[in-house]
Simulated assay, not measured.
Amino acid sequence: MSRTVFCRKYQKDLEGLDFAPMPGAKGQDIFENISRQAWEEWQHQQTMLINEKHLSMMDPNHRKYLQAQTDRFFNNEPFDKAEGYVPPEK
């Protein structure tokens, strides 16, 4: 049975994650307050940012930048998007 969380991003009860996506307090906060839908959307955005901006997760500054964008995304604040990305037409 899936668990439900009150999602910070969407401000409603939605299906939660099965486990914390990272260790520590930040991972626990995401587990308790972010829905599976919001996490999957962030994963997509994060991948585009890493690819378009050529981020290296070995670089502490790049990790710090990505963490800041993660927080902005989940708090409904403006966040960086991949420049030049055009979604495919349906």
Rank of each mutant, 00 (worst) to 15 (best):
S35C: 02
K53Q: 10
F6P: 03
E83A: 14
Y85K: 03
K64L: 10
Y65V: 05
E77G: 06
G16T: 03
Q28G: 11
P87H: 09
P23Y: 13
A20K: 07
K53T: 01
D71E: 15
R63C: 08
V5Y: 06
G16M: 00
Q37G: 08
I34C: 08
D59A: 07
V5F: 03
E83R: 14
N33Y: 11
A68F: 08
K53M: 14
N75E: 12
N33F: 10
I50M: 01
Q11S: 10
L14V: 06
P88A: 13
E89I: 11
N75P: 05
K9Y: 06
H62T: 03
Y85C: 00
W39F: 10
E52A: 11
R8N: 02
A82Y: 05
A25R: 11
M1L: 12
D13I: 11
E89F: 09
D29V: 10
I34D: 04
L55H: 00
F6V: 07
F31S: 04
N51M: 14
I50F: 04
E32V: 07
L49Y: 01
A20H: 02
G16K: 05
K26H: 15
G84N: 04
D71V: 13
N76R: 09
H54Q: 14
D18N: 12
R8C: 05
L66R: 01
H62G: 03
H54S: 14
L14Y: 03
K90H: 12
V86E: 06
M22G: 06
R3E: 12
D59V: 08
Q67I: 12
K53H: 10
N33M: 07
M57E: 02
G84P: 00
D29P: 00
M57N: 06
W42F: 01
P23N: 12
R36A: 13
L14N: 09
E77L: 15
Q45K: 09
Y65S: 05
N51T: 15
Y10H: 15
K26D: 14
D13F: 14
K9M: 15
R36N: 09
F74M: 10
D80W: 01
K64S: 09
V5T: 05
N76A: 00
F31V: 02
A20L: 01
A82H: 03
